[in-house]
Design a binder for these strands. Structure first.
Lengths: 340, 340
DNA sequence: CTGAAAGCGCTAACAG
DNA sequence: CTGTTAGCGCTTTCAG
């Protein structure tokens, strides 16, 4: 059905080895210009397409990368994926993309199948703070870059937002609006995005001299709206004065927080200001529109891909440290002055 | 670094061929139970992982499928992708996912690279009404299924919504609210989703006895908000009585329509009712929340994957016709009674 | 039931 | 500059 290199060689009256060299830009110069010409013509005529499997087997380079994301339907990830593909696609790589649903077992299992497919490298948006897959990758010395999340043990390079700064900016902004009682809805603590933001919140509260007793933290069971609603209710049901602002660890949690308010007879931003993280699509159109940090999602994908490519190419072996990208605070309707 | 079948065979004191049979569930029965046991143990011990490239080269089955989507950041597609992966992933397939940006040249080029990777089948969410890639696939007799979009020449099976019915339901619903002047913002006419919905609109208008002169159609240059805004402005700037309702060919266009209203001093749904298509995420939270058809995106992916799998397995060769899935109309705030 | 041998399609050393 | 050879790691006939 499809023609092979041997077919081309035969039709061109040369040896397969010669045809191979003629077809490959890097080794073309080893073949007479006329021969190259002829082989190229015949190849085009026969609609020859090299078999990547055979080439990969021979060269042990598959030009495939593995891309692990928690869930493609979370709008945070598609822009990252596109950034990755933009860079790596241009370099001849294709991406095997899998969803792990934040399930460590599934993550390991999917990683193994990708490994068997001899991916040349990996990009992981799925890392837990302690992640067996990351350890397995580091042990085998396979090129891989983390994105959005980082691990406790800095085994691999990572690209993420500058969360500590962002949290501080959020607190400063809320203080400037007159808020003194600021709560935090944190994400799961086995993820860096849950843990680091919570730690940064605690630090910022202290640094700004706010009363920790009036700045409670609730840990959501997942980065979704329902969990945000639950955590928010926990905060608002406490005895004592309620907070006037809540910093949520991502946009979905923030939406959950806003949803929770009605059952307390409260409204955002009248009674409570809410800030999210990431600026996923359409946060400018929900009601109220959400104040949040615009994570440079596409750029993160690009950056991670560039690092990975350089590593695979052997151009530069990256430091296993985190690159922090700046995220501007986008101020919208969900934040306002603290109620009197 | 990684151990091969030969390593396992040597360590187990058997021939590689025997080890292969022992490791493969289908041929295991040809090997003595004791030998199987030993090989399995050694394999586990050495952490043996079969090389998919080598296996694929030998068997000409890569257990990879190619998944072409226009743009992963369009929230319509991730749920479809997840549906596909759910079915095919469970069957041992991995998906190479690429974005074509509705660029025919890019589509062909990406398809070729996927073909070289010897994908066992394809799922295309990218088809144009006349699509060279679809023709190339059909000519080569490669298993492939279209999703969401179909082609004019029914060369491949497709899974899509029941657009003709939906359009009729939309018109009937608007008529029941008292609307008589209903316009349509159509999508690009080189896509089935643009073309079929426009034809169905024309047919429904006629069928219901509405005056075609008062039911104008504008064709948007793309399925995005900006194009929807432009097309809407075109409709609203016409001489004569303005429509009281606009059916948009998808949700993004509908949002564009709603955005366009302010510059005409109009409001949705007070002056104009708007209906979209697909029910992408958060259409329930924008302002006004959008009345739209809930496309069963995940289910479409599942269905398409099932058809593809059966085809690849040789279990059943599908008819090259379109399977229409029902889409319920979700009524929200963007539709209301026609103004007096 | 196990071993031997061949070959999937390609590239890379080496020899001529 | 071209041809020869070998082999990547696996499966699959075919003998034994």
């Amino acid at each position: 059905m499809v023609s092979t290199l041997a077919d081309v060689a035969r039709a061109a009256g040369v040896h397969p080895g010669t045809a191979s060299k003629a077809l490959n830009p890097d080794s073309r110069h080893l073949v007479a210009a006329l021969t190259v010409q002829r082989v190229l013509e015949i190849a085009a005529e026969l609609d020859y397409q090299p078999n990547s499997l055979a080439r990969g087997l021979r060269t042990s380079r598959s030009f495939t990368i593995g891309l692990l994301v928690p869930d493609l339907t979370n709008p945070l990830f598609p822009p990252i994926v596109r950034g990755v593909e933009e860079v790596l696609g241009a370099a001849g790589y294709s991406a095997l993309i899998v969803n792990t649903d934040n399930d460590a077992k599934k993550e390991m299992q999917l990683f193994m199948t990708l490994l068997n497919r001899r991916c040349d490298g990996f990009i992981l948006a799925t890392a837990f703070r302690h992640d067996p897959v990351v350890e397995a990758i580091a042990k085998r010395n396979i090129p891989a870059v983390l994105v959005n999340r980082s691990t406790e043990s800095h085994l691999l390079p990572a690209v993420a937002g500058d969360e500590v700064t962002e949290v501080r900016v959020a607190i400063e902004f809320l203080i400037s609006l007159g808020h003194r009682r600021i709560a935090h809805v944190a994400g799961p603590q086995d993820l860096s995005t849950g843990y680091i933001r919570r730690r940064a919140f605690l630090a910022a509260i202290k640094e700004k001299g706010l009363d920790p007793k009036e700045c409670p933290v609730a840990i959501a069971s997942g980065f979704n709206e329902e969990a945000g609603k639950d955590a928010s209710k926990q905060i608002l049901s406490r005895l004592g004065k309620r907070p006037t602002a809540i910093l949520a660890a991502n946009d979905q949690l923030a939406i959950g927080v806003i949803d929770s308010l009605t059952s307390f007879g409260m409204k955002c931003p009248r009674d409570i200001s809410v800030i999210g993280f990431n600026d996923i699509p359409r946060m400018d159109r929900i009601n109220p529109s959400l104040t949040t940090f615009a994570l440079p999602k596409h750029e993160m994908g690009v950056k991670a891909a560039q690092i990975l490519k350089a590593w695979i190419d052997g151009t530069s072996i990256p430091e296993p440290s985190t690159i922090h990208l700046e995220c501007p605070l986008v101020i919208r309707e969900s934040t306002g002055p603290a109620p009197a």
